[in-house]
């Protein structure tokens, strides 16, 4: 078996705000780890054999790695913009491949069926043409000009609007979504899915958001996103095969999942295969 190239990546392992000196026990890709707050206030992460693991606190979460990260954690410049509400949605465990959790997040075609009357509604099921590319400089997958009719695009949205999205995959188990911001048309709301791979078919998902919305109470923002994510959860737990197939022969691309095709191609190119099913060639 080849070396798991995902070993050197950064993964979320805790909410930063809930980390105390006692800490929590969790896992990364099968290895038990312990996360706690050290006396200096920084996060400390220890691997299964007691070795210190890299750690940083960013975007409301503690991030760590089992290997030797070659790059700092990806940037989300909007996260530092003044005036945004930072929403810690909290962990949800899903019995699915971490890659499948991201792939589902990238798929807008499921909105009318899974998030009925919130993020989509029949008969508005059509996904209009949009652009997908693998940006070589940043080494990220991007989908832009994604437009979709939504009955209630955000907690701050009054009634249905056509929403524009951009999707970005900056790391194999993380996606950042930019979405029309009803109260501030010139800005994008940022909605992320940070996925902690526990095993190839088990993950802890930590959604996080940076929104322009001064009106909606924080708890309502949390519940809106949890509602949407838990609607996905039951779908994710029933996907077959459980691992994400990376052989292009196994899928019939439609316009809606061009992003998924690019994501799989990008994973394959990098050997990001933890949670993937590679079909013999």
């Amino acid at each position: 078996m080849t070396r798991n190239t995902m070993i050197d990546g950064w993964y979320p392992v805790s909410l930063a705000s809930q980390l105390d000196a006692h800490g929590r026990r969790t896992a990364l890709m099968g290895e038990p780890i312990a996360v706690r707050r050290g006396e200096d206030g920084n996060a400390q992460v220890t691997g299964g054999n007691g070795r210190d693991l890299p750690a940083c606190i960013r975007y409301g979460h503690v991030w760590s790695s089992l290997g030797d990260p070659q790059k700092p954690l990806f940037a989300i410049p909007e996260a530092d913009q003044p005036g945004r509400r930072l929403v810690e949605v909290g962990v949800v465990r899903v019995r699915c491949s971490p890659l499948r959790a991201v792939e589902n997040f990238l798929d807008i075609a499921h909105f009318p069926f899974v998030h009925t009357d919130i993020l989509g509604a029949e008969p508005h099921t059509e996904v209009q043409n949009y652009k997908v590319d693998i940006r070589e400089d940043e080494d990220e997958v991007w989908a832009t000009q994604v437009k979709f009719y939504q009955p209630q695009a955000a907690k701050s949205a009054e009634g249905g609007i056509t929403t524009e999205y951009m999707y970005r995959v900056p790391a194999p188990t993380c996606s950042v979504l930019y979405k029309t911001c009803p109260p501030r048309p010139a800005e994008w709301d940022v909605i992320t899915l940070f996925v902690q791979p526990l095993a190839e078919d088990l993950c802890d998902v930590w959604p996080w958001m940076a929104l322009f919305d001064d009106e909606t109470p924080m708890t309502d923002l949390i519940h809106f996103q949890q509602t949407i994510f838990v609607q996905d959860r039951s779908i994710l737990e029933n996907q077959i095969p459980r691992l994400l197939p990376l052989d292009p022969g196994m899928e019939i691309p439609t316009r809606a999942d061009l992003t998924s095709v690019a994501y799989r191609r990008w994973l394959k190119r990098h050997g990001y295969t933890y949670g993937a099913q590679l079909v013999a060639q």
Binding site: L15, Q18, E88, V89, G90, V91, P217, M218, T219, D220, I222, H223, Q226
Partner: peptide, 10 residues
Amino acid sequence: RPVDFHPGCE
């Protein structure tokens, strides 16, 4: 009246 049950433990 929404309660922040998770993650806030309200």
